[in-house]
Amino acid sequence: MSIADKAKNVVQQTVGKAEEAVGKRTDDQEQIAQGKKDQAMGEARQEHEKAKDALDDK
């Protein structure tokens, strides 16, 4: 996994956490959902990159 891909995934997860926190503060259910979605997407991409790395190591 390239460092740029890893950083991009971490940034997406962090943005998602921030969106979720702001949504909770403002009681905005749509923003909470978007934040959770961004976190899940970042985590899924991270897992995908890890799987690709595992295949490359074999």
Rank of each mutant, 00 (worst) to 15 (best):
M1K: 07
S2Q: 03
I3S: 08
I3F: 14
A4D: 14
D5Q: 02
D5H: 04
D5C: 07
D5R: 08
K6I: 00
K8E: 00
N9I: 11
V10I: 14
Q12L: 15
Q13I: 10
Q13A: 04
T14W: 08
V15S: 04
V15A: 02
G16R: 12
G16M: 03
G16W: 06
A18E: 11
E19W: 03
E19T: 12
E20A: 07
E20P: 02
E20C: 04
E20L: 00
V22Y: 03
G23R: 12
G23H: 04
G23M: 14
G23Y: 07
K24W: 11
R25D: 01
D27G: 05
D27Q: 04
D28Q: 01
D28W: 03
D28C: 11
D28N: 15
D28V: 13
Q29E: 15
E30H: 04
Q31W: 01
Q31I: 15
Q31E: 12
Q31Y: 09
I32K: 05
A33G: 13
A33P: 02
Q34S: 14
G35C: 03
K36T: 06
K37G: 06
D38H: 02
D38K: 13
D38C: 05
Q39F: 14
Q39Y: 10
A40G: 05
A40K: 01
M41S: 13
M41F: 01
G42F: 01
G42N: 06
G42C: 11
E43D: 04
E43F: 10
A44D: 05
R45M: 06
R45N: 15
R45G: 03
E47F: 06
E47K: 04
H48T: 10
E49T: 03
E49L: 08
K50M: 00
K50V: 07
A51S: 09
K52T: 14
K52E: 15
D53W: 12
D53E: 15
D53A: 12
D53P: 10
D53L: 08
A54L: 01
A54H: 10
D56V: 12
D57Q: 12
K58E: 15
